[in-house]
């Protein structure tokens, strides 16, 4: 499944980061790497963007961007 499908409170492990060039590098450098644990923490009132806890920080990602991160529970 992909990161945007996680329900609030759910945890998962990153298996792959897809996407091209600078976009993908940006996610990798923030620590979203295969093996990294991620927790969905919440979302904006309109359901998007969503917030995730990654390496102790809370990141806010648009669903469209989060779709590029594959995870397994």
């Amino acid at each position: 499944m992909t990161l945007d499908r996680l329900a609030p409170g759910q945890r998962a492990r990153v298996t792959a980061v897809e996407g091209e060039g600078a976009f993908r590098r940006r996610l990798l450098e923030l620590g979203l790497l295969p093996g990294t644990e991620v927790e969905r923490t919440g979302q904006a009132p309109l359901g998007d963007p969503m917030t995730y806890r990654v390496r102790g920080a809370v990141l806010c990602l648009r669903a469209n961007d989060a779709r590029n991160v594959r995870v397994e529970r």
Binding site: G21, F23, L59
Partner: peptide
């Protein structure tokens, strides 16, 4: 020119 993730840290 290149798509970049819209990232924010809270």
């Amino acid at each position: 020119r290149t798509h970049e993730p819209v990232l924010l840290e809270l």
